[in-house]
Write a protein that binds this DNA or RNA. Structure first.
Lengths: 148, 148
DNA sequence: TCTATCTGTAGCAGAAAGAGTTACAAACAA
DNA sequence: TTGTTTGTAACTCTTTCTGCTACAGATAGA
């Protein structure tokens, strides 16, 4: 396991920002909803800012807001901005190069890894932030009729 | 990051077993090629055995061999046997349920996660172990002309 | 039956990665 | 000038993974 929870938090954060468009949201406020520390949120926002998805403002009455509309942000952009890629890692130690398998397997797996990453990206690119917001809105009515 | 290197090792191990079909391979021997400890290999083989991909034999002249032909084993089976799934994790702490976003985002992301997992599985299912072996064989000739 | 060999697994130590926290400089509105 | 907010460094704690030792149980072969 040990998967990355940053992505889930990022989607959460962006959804909140989308709901308060044209308003600076403070990291404290976001942290309260995600149930974590404000610094954790600011670190996350740093990545989203580098990717051009949000913009922050320091100082009094500062905060963060989306820098594009929710329809112009897709989940692949979010995923990539966190650079948490790699579904599986390669060998922790260099395999034994005296063995014919060990000598060549890395490059084969590396290519496979890239291919998988591309397919995840394609899948995520189909979802806009605006789609996620719609799904969450649907979830509000009824208890949880499954936002499939 | 912190992705799972188990998958890479598993493919490595299975490739070795395929090359010594109908022969019991010892965990020591595999460990030497993967460049790790024999116990690590035996733990890994346990998963593959539960999935019915290999069979082990204890005692003198024991070891492990494939329980099917390489053409009957695909990488999705390998991936699933390790149960290392989950491309991204959900929130480490329960989000604040007082917040409308926090209350519903988990189920939305959970569904997304399942969808991504399915698409990885579909992609991996296209590769048989026999395909991997072919790619590695190709890599032997020439230095590394890219086993794409 | 005895012995040498190999797997399966428990249990421990060390390393690595993350999360959470405190603290503070820099930016900025009022 | 003052109060507020981000950005970031630095630290601790926890969790997870790897590697390792040790040993019980299984088994082939003498």
């Amino acid at each position: 396991m040990a998967a990355n929870s940053q992505f889930a938090m990022a989607v959460h954060v962006l959804t909140m920002l989308a709901q308060k468009q044209d308003e600076n949201v403070k990291s404290d406020c976001i942290a309260a909803s995600v149930n974590t520390n404000a610094v954790v949120i600011r670190r996350l926002l740093g990545h989203l800012q580098n990717a051009g998805l949000v913009m922050s403002q320091t100082g009094a009455s500062g905060g963060t807001r989306l820098s594009r509309s929710p329809a112009e942000i897709d989940l692949a952009q979010v995923y990539d901005s966190l650079a948490c890629g790699e579904v599986f890692a390669l060998h922790p130690r260099q395999p034994n190069t005296d063995c014919p398998v060990g000598r060549n397997i890395e490059s084969v797996l590396c290519n496979l890894q890239k291919e998988i990453d591309r397919s995840i990206d394609e899948k995520l690119a189909r979802y806009k932030l605006s789609d996620i917001i719609n799904l969450i809105e649907q979830g509000k009515e009824g208890t949880s009729k499954g936002a499939a």
